[in-house]
């Protein structure tokens, strides 16, 4: 007999959880995935209810926890679709949606090519520089790079500079110079 994963919580509690997950998913979900937000909420809710069932309803779900569940559900779905090629790799800029970019397929394509070249070049950098430059390219400041990687800011700064130099040299050789 199929189990009822929701039985550990009351209808009201489930409705409240759903409402919070709707908000959390809406904040995490890329625009191109927004049409499926309901399914994502349902997926996240099932995960939460499964935990409630295992703990026989004795667990309280913080907003923090629900947000994380929403995040994991959305990332899982993005991965699933990309891997099934339901979304072209260069389709839409994802969470950092910018309509001007989305409207310019040529630029998107050229950015994607540059991105692939960057990743090829990063492979050739020595590891500390690769790590520092990767976080720089992810938008992090020098101080943050140091804190993430356990380095003094000065060391992070040196590695970013040297790594960017290496990266530029490599991109120039590949024809992606400025």
């Amino acid at each position: 007999m199929p189990r009822d994963p929701s039985r550990a919580l009351s209808e009201e509690e489930i409705a409240e959880l759903r409402e919070q997950l709707v908000r959390a998913v809406a904040k995490t979900c890329p625009r191109w995935l927004a049409a499926d937000a309901d399914d994502l909420v349902q997926g996240a809710l099932l995960k939460v209810l499964e935990i409630a069932r295992r703990r026989e309803g004795t667990v309280e779900f913080s907003t923090f926890y629900l947000r994380r569940t929403a995040y994991s559900t959305v990332v899982d779905e993005i991965r699933r679709r990309r891997r099934r090629r339901e979304v072209p790799l260069d389709e839409g800029p994802g969470m950092d949606d910018q309509p001007t970019l989305a409207a310019d397929p040529e630029r998107l394509s050229s950015d994607s090519e540059l991105g692939r070249a960057i990743r090829g070049c990063l492979e050739t950098l020595i590891r500390p520089r690769r790590l520092a430059v990767t976080l720089h390219l992810q938008g992090h400041k020098i101080r943050e790079v140091g804190e993430f990687l356990g380095w003094k800011a000065k060391r992070a700064e040196n590695l970013i500079y040297r790594g960017l130099d290496d990266l530029r040299g490599c991109l120039d050789r590949k024809g992606f110079g400025r």
Binding site: R68, Y71, S72, V75, D76, R79, R82, R83, L89, D90, P93, G94, D96, L101, L108, D111, S112, E113, L114, G115, R116, A117, I118, R119, H136, L137, Q138, G139, L164, L167, R178
Partner: peptide, 27 residues
């Protein structure tokens, strides 16, 4: 840097998906 960041973000390819850490770990 902005040009490089834009390019880095535009490439969404997972070359070895079996090696991807779970979303929870990335988070």
């Amino acid at each position: 840097s902005e040009r490089l960041r834009r390019g880095f973000a535009a490439d969404r390819h997972a070359p070895r998906p079996e090696e991807c850490p779970p979303p929870e770990q990335i988070g």
